[in-house]
Computed example of a mutant assay.
Amino acid sequence: MPDPIQADFVLDLMPDLRDALREAASLALPSFRAGGHTAARIWSKAGGSPVTEADVAVDTFLKVRLGQIVPAAAWLSEETADDPVRLGHDLVWIVDPIDGTRAFLSGHPDWSIAVALLKAGEPVVGFVHAPALGQDYEAVRGRGATCNGRIIGTAPGRDLATARVTGPKPMFDRLERGVSRAGAEAAFTRVARVPSLALRVARVADGSIDVGLVSSDARDWDLAAADLILREAGGSVCDLRGVATVYNRPDPVHGELVAVGHALRDAVVSAWSRGG
Rank of each mutant, 00 (worst) to 15 (best):
R141E: 14
A73I: 05
P252N: 12
I113W: 07
V260C: 04
L21K: 01
P2S: 14
P97E: 06
R231A: 03
L66C: 08
V56A: 01
S112V: 05
E78F: 00
F32W: 08
T60A: 14
V165T: 00
S236K: 08
G183L: 08
Q6M: 14
T162R: 13
S273A: 14
T52A: 03
P156G: 02
A139I: 03
R41I: 12
R265C: 15
I209Q: 01
L11Q: 15
I94W: 05
G48C: 04
L29D: 00
D16F: 02
A73H: 07
L133M: 06
H262K: 05
V214Y: 04
Y137E: 02
A103W: 01
D59V: 00
A74I: 02
I94E: 05
S112L: 02
G242W: 03
V140T: 13
A116L: 03
A205H: 00
H108S: 02
E138P: 01
D19S: 13
G36E: 12
L213T: 05
K119A: 14
A54N: 06
L105G: 00
A182Y: 10
W221L: 05
D136H: 07
R193V: 13
A28H: 00
G67F: 09
S208A: 08
V124L: 15
S44W: 09
V211Y: 01
G234C: 10
P71L: 09
D90Y: 03
R143M: 15
S196Q: 09
P156W: 12
L105A: 07
D96V: 09
L160W: 08
G153D: 12
T154C: 10
P50L: 13
H37I: 14
R22T: 07
S180C: 09
T146S: 01
